[in-house]
């Protein structure tokens, strides 16, 4: 039986959760700042330290967590719908790996030190390049399997490149820097990063949200979808381009953060009528809330080094696979 919530209620509740997560992200951090000091800083007449912490550190971090989370959640929902596979997530197209390769190349060749925009720029460039390769490999075939195989080839190639960089890194510190970046984090991000990621994520979001009806029609297979008026070629182009630009932009500033795109649609789906279109927007908002909460957890959970965001989301991904497994074995 379905336990679907009315859509306005679902979207309202998720938005409230995301807003609360965003505000909490401004309140908590390495330095203990009282609410009074933060409110004073926000209104413009606080002390200098509080206002630097709020505007230069916590605000860009909160904004990035919301935006990157939204992009990953939405891309996961759209790709699961398009590939008709509940285990699909943005990395199946190889985009995340390719973007990571671009970033790793920037670190490896020392280009990242030239300007803060070089690393994300290269990451986005590589994401787009991987998309070209994906189109070349997948050809015109409309079957999801062809696309998944082509995506796997691209992802494997990019993964091999990353391993090569680690293998050849001139010293342990360079390797460490690459590893640290690959774990994914939103630590020490500035508004420069926000301005790099946000336009990409905005374009990606718009392109992915547009596909709801075609994704619904694809529930009945490709022939029926086309006979219901869906233009599958355009849908595919919008979807792949939106994912590459949006996820490329997100990975460029956050590093490789896995599993958000997988987990969020699974958490959202049971609350909707389970049609692919119904989970798109809620997955974006839910992704924003989840990643912001995970990033908050990273700061609050006591540990010797700050935990990396990608590590926390990877741990969150495990129960989802277990639930699937249990359903498959009819244990639950």
């Amino acid at each position: 039986m379905s336990h679907s919530l009315p859509r306005p209620l679902l979207i309202g509740a998720l938005t409230a959760l995301a807003v609360i997560a965003g505000l909490a992200s401004l309140l908590f951090g390495a330095v203990d700042l009282s609410l009074d000091r933060l409110v004073a800083a926000a209104s413009g007449d606080g002390d200098r330290i509080a206002s630097i912490i709020l505007f230069d550190l916590r605000l860009p971090r909160a904004l990035l967590a919301l935006a990157v989370g939204a992009m990953l959640g939405l891309a996961g929902a759209a790709l699961q719908g398009y590939l008709r596979n509940p285990l699909a997530e943005p990395s199946v197209l190889g985009t995340s790996n390719a973007a990571a390769l671009g970033a790793v190349a920037a670190i490896y060749f020392g280009l990242a030190q030239l300007h803060p925009a070089v690393l994300p720029g290269l990451a986005i460039g590589c994401a787009l390049l991987s998309l070209g390769l994906l189109f070349l490999l997948a050809g015109d075939a409309e079957s999801p399997l062809t696309l998944i195989l082509a995506g796997l080839a691209v992802a494997t190639l990019a993964g091999a490149g990353i391993s090569l960089a680690l293998n050849l890194s001139p010293n342990p510190f360079a390797a460490m820097e690459i590893m640290t970046w690959l774990l994914g984090s939103l630590e020490n991000r500035s508004f420069d990063h926000v301005w790099i990621a946000l336009p990409c994520i905005a374009i990606g979001t718009a392109m992915l949200l547009w596909n709801g009806r075609a994704l619904d029609a694809l529930t009945l297979g490709e022939d029926a979808a086309q006979a219901l008026g869906a233009d599958l070629k355009r849908t595919r182009r919008r979807l792949l381009l939106g994912t590459a630009i949006g996820v490329g932009g997100a990975v460029a500033v956050s590093g490789a953060i896995g599993f958000v795109g997988l987990i969020v649609p699974h958490l959202i789906r049971p609350l909707t009528d389970r049609s692919p279109s119904a989970i798109l927007l809620p997955s974006a908002i839910g992704g924003a809330a989840l990643l912001t909460l995970a990033d908050l957890g990273v700061r609050i959970i006591p540990s010797t080094n700050e935990l990396k965001l990608g590590v926390v989301t990877a741990f969150l991904g495990v129960p989802i696979f277990l639930i699937h497994l249990m359903r498959e074995r009819r244990l639950w």
Binding site: T219, A227, D273, R274
Partner: peptide, 28 residues
Amino acid sequence: ARRIAYLPQGQLLHWPLTVERLVGLGRL
């Protein structure tokens, strides 16, 4: 699509929609 309705062979159905929602896809 508005001129010719099509019922394909087989019973392909990828997501667990309710019957009403599924029949509603015909209005797309």
